[in-house]
């Protein structure tokens, strides 16, 4: 998905894990995914480079749809659909 399309997405849940280091953001995503319904979209904010690679892999394993990542100044917005 293009960055422009990603930016137009409104997430049903935003998880701000910028204050934590690996594996904090992944664990925050794992906790929060239980709070949304199938088909809903979650946005994970992470300042951790490793998480940017971990979440797409985690999505594949868990059967969620990884939508893409937007790079912001000093952090990433990682979007996925349950």
């Amino acid at each position: 998905m293009s960055t422009e399309n990603l930016e137009n997405i409104t997430a049903d849940k935003v998880v701000d894990a910028r204050g934590t280091s690996c594996p904090g953001p992944l664990l925050a995503a794992k906790k929060a995914i239980g709070e949304i319904e199938k088909g809903q979209i979650m946005e994970v904010l992470s300042a951790d480079e490793g998480t940017r690679r971990d979440i797409p892999k985690w999505c594949t394993k868990k059967g969620f749809e990884y939508l893409g990542t937007i790079e912001e100044a000093g952090f990433f917005k990682i979007l996925l659909k349950k």
Binding site: C22, P23, G24, L26, L27, A29, K30, D54, W58, K61, K62
Partner: peptide, 10 residues
């Protein structure tokens, strides 16, 4: 602890 976090996520 970090590895356990990875295991927990999965």
């Amino acid at each position: 602890g970090v590895i356990l976090g990875g295991a927990a996520a999965e």
